[in-house]
């Protein structure tokens, strides 16, 4: 082969394994020994059992329980069926529900529009092998590693109205956590702080995997840095881009921990996941009502999951 850079990077060389077996289908099958078959059966069965037991059964049970008023006490036979009453209550007489939906959407928008692009931008910068790039990398990734209790505590030190850093330095008296018009933004900054680090690391890993010869070729052709990124690197990174997108959506739907650490998801920080926890976990034990909220959350997630699967499958068909 010549020493020229590879241009058709996306046309994969067939895997070496396929070239070594030159026999037909039957011969391939006979290659599977008894051990192989046991291993494969186990590998299908064990995950299947785990997925059914840990994902599908609980999900179905949640949907079923959402039609009852179970309080978590007493045998299952005594559970009373109340139909759609829980859903009626959620929508009509439960004041935190509407703010929770709004906050979840706001969360998604903020991560998607600000935090994710910023994380990608940082990854591109760090990919340039700046001096001290390891240091920046660690500093930016640290929030993802820190335990939640610690993160809640760190931001409490910053945001506390009477004793916090922000008000101490700037001499204001903004009630960062208590004012329901302000606290969601304060928390979004904290959530974004974590999310940026996460996206940065994912994206950086992807950038490191891009064939440097692609960039060289673009540079030889006189393409600027910006247009190289948008026209060559970005399209090549399509799988990573999709992962980043999915991670962003998942993170904003399951957003929970920070608001729970701050004020258990009340007073301006309502999120559907926090409402589910408030109702189901703990002494409250409104299992039926909480399940109705969880089912609503499942439906919203299903919309995104369906969209994602639809895109991926359409790609595969092409």
């Amino acid at each position: 082969m010549s020493d020229l850079p590879l241009i058709q990077a996306d046309r994969a060389v067939p895997p070496p394994a396929a070239t070594t077996t030159n026999g037909g289908r039957g011969r391939r099958l006979r290659l599977l020994s008894r051990t192989d078959r046991v291993v494969i059966t186990l590998m299908v069965l064990v995950p299947l059992l785990l997925v059914t037991g840990l994902v599908w059964l609980p999900a179905v049970a949640t949907v079923l329980l959402s039609g009852t008023n179970w309080d978590g006490i007493g045998p299952i036979g005594e559970i009373e069926w109340v139909g759609a009453k829980n859903y009626d209550d959620v929508v009509n007489i439960y004041p935190p529900f509407v703010p929770a939906v709004q906050n979840n959407l706001l969360w998604l928008a903020a991560l998607f529009v600000v935090a994710t692009p910023f994380g990608m931008f940082l990854a591109v910068l760090l990919d340039k092998e700046l001096r001290g790039s390891r240091f920046y990398q660690t500093a930016l990734y640290l929030p993802v590693v820190l335990s939640l209790a610690l993160i809640g505590f760190v931001w409490q030190l910053i945001y506390s109205r009477d004793q916090g850093l922000l008000n101490g330095v700037f001499g204001g008296d903004t009630d960062w956590y208590g004012d329901p018009n302000v606290n969601i933004w304060a928390v979004l900054v904290a959530a974004g702080w974590r999310h940026v680090g996460y996206i940065m690391l994912l994206y950086l890993a992807g950038l490191k995997g891009v064939d440097p010869s692609l960039r060289e070729a673009a540079a030889v052709d006189g393409s600027s840095e910006t247009s190289t990124f948008f026209r060559v690197v970005f399209p090549v990174m399509r799988p990573i881009n999709i992962i980043v997108l999915v991670v962003t959506v998942i993170e904003s739907l399951r957003a929970f921990d920070l608001v729970w650490v701050i004020n258990k998801g009340r007073n301006g920080l309502e999120l559907i996941s926090a409402l589910v926890t408030q109702n189901v976990v703990g002494e409250a034990s409104r299992i039926g009502f909480g399940s109705a909220l969880a089912t609503i959350m499942l439906m919203v997630s299903l919309v995104f999951i369906t969209l994602y699967l639809w895109t991926v499958m359409r790609e595969d068909k092409r």
């Binding site: 007489i93 004041p95 109702n279 409250a284 409104r286």
Partner: peptide, 29 residues
């Protein structure tokens, strides 16, 4: 009841502290 205290009264009292004017609406809720 703990479910009433934690899922109704806590948000309601916080709502009252935020906006002490709409007592009627709060109590109806």
């Amino acid at each position: 009841r703990p479910d009433f205290a934690s899922t109704v009264i806590i948000p309601a009292l916080q709502q009252f502290i935020k906006n002490p004017k709409d007592i009627g609406g709060l109590l109806t809720s």
